[in-house]
Design a protein around this nucleic acid. Structure first.
Lengths: 146, 146
DNA sequence: CCCTATTATATCGCGTCCAATTAAATTTAC
DNA sequence: GTAAATTTAATTGGACGCGATATAATAGGG
């Protein structure tokens, strides 16, 4: 039998396919994101601002499940590209408010085609995609938000 | 209605929860992997050698969905720790054969507890975990292996 | 054989992640 | 009411991972 080590086999891991699929799909985005000169992280950050206009780093991090150590360089890069502005809150100097610019809004027009382009790369039945979405949602909710 | 941009909302993305879950679960591994002083990438690499003893970089990359740009430093690190050996194939000097050492085998004993420890962190019904595993498998298979 | 194409790995630069640090605001103790 | 301790927010710095390119070895075509 010798099942003692079975749990250490790659094929028996749940995390591993998750890790691979995540990386591979991010990679699929790359050619499309290259066209608008964004990384995936920059892209999901812009998504938040396309939807919300303004937000501080803390709130942003909560939405994106990213800490400020990741966000600070991302936001500086996006500021440099002219898509957002970064400004300390007057009421609380610790807080950095980030807001989208007109340039940033314009980028949305270019980005709008991306989800469909990517969708056509992924071979998954609609019901499976929904099930995957549902289970991942449940998994995400079980993560301590710290 | 204004549904034109709905596909750009974070909540409507399939990739985003995948990306988040992957990162968060890798993070969950960290305290356990710290105990045996491995990164997640080093861990899945060792998994392959716990199962297969010997393999060249190309084959390893195919199994792990990682390229030599990632694997070279990982393998050098693991060699440095004494868990594997790296040796050019005599028949073809381009090929680098990697093999596990006795030290590497010993590490397996310490690692054997990790999958269970992690499993207990993840709140997911068995049938959901299996369904997730199945769908991710399908998704992985649709990835061009290049 | 020689030249070109292909294959396998290594190198390098950038982006992201984590831990430690800095700076600001709030709470607590006296 | 003020000083010290705690908490909170963001930044910095170092390590790791990834993509693009370089290097070296082999294979293939004439």
């Amino acid at each position: 039998m010798n099942k003692k080590y079975d749990a250490l086999k790659l094929n028996n891991q749940l995390c591993f396919p998750l890790y691979v699929c995540s990386k591979e799909i991010v990679r699929m985005y790359k050619p499309f994101l290259d066209e608008i000169d964004l990384t995936y992280t920059q892209y999901i950050t812009m998504m938040v601002f396309w939807e919300h206009k303004e937000m501080n780093v803390k709130e942003l991090g909560k939405l994106l499940f990213l800490d400020s150590g990741t966000l600070t360089p991302v936001l500086k890069k996006l500021e440099q590209k002219g898509y957002i502005t970064r400004k300390r809150a007057e009421s609380d100097e610790r807080v950095l408010n980030v807001a989208i610019t007109a340039e940033g809004e314009k980028l949305k027009e270019k980005a709008v085609e991306i989800p469909a382009k990517l969708g056509s790369c992924i071979r998954l039945e609609d019901n499976e995609a929904m099930e995957l979405y549902r289970i991942l949602g449940k998994l995400m909710n079980s993560i301590p938000t710290m």
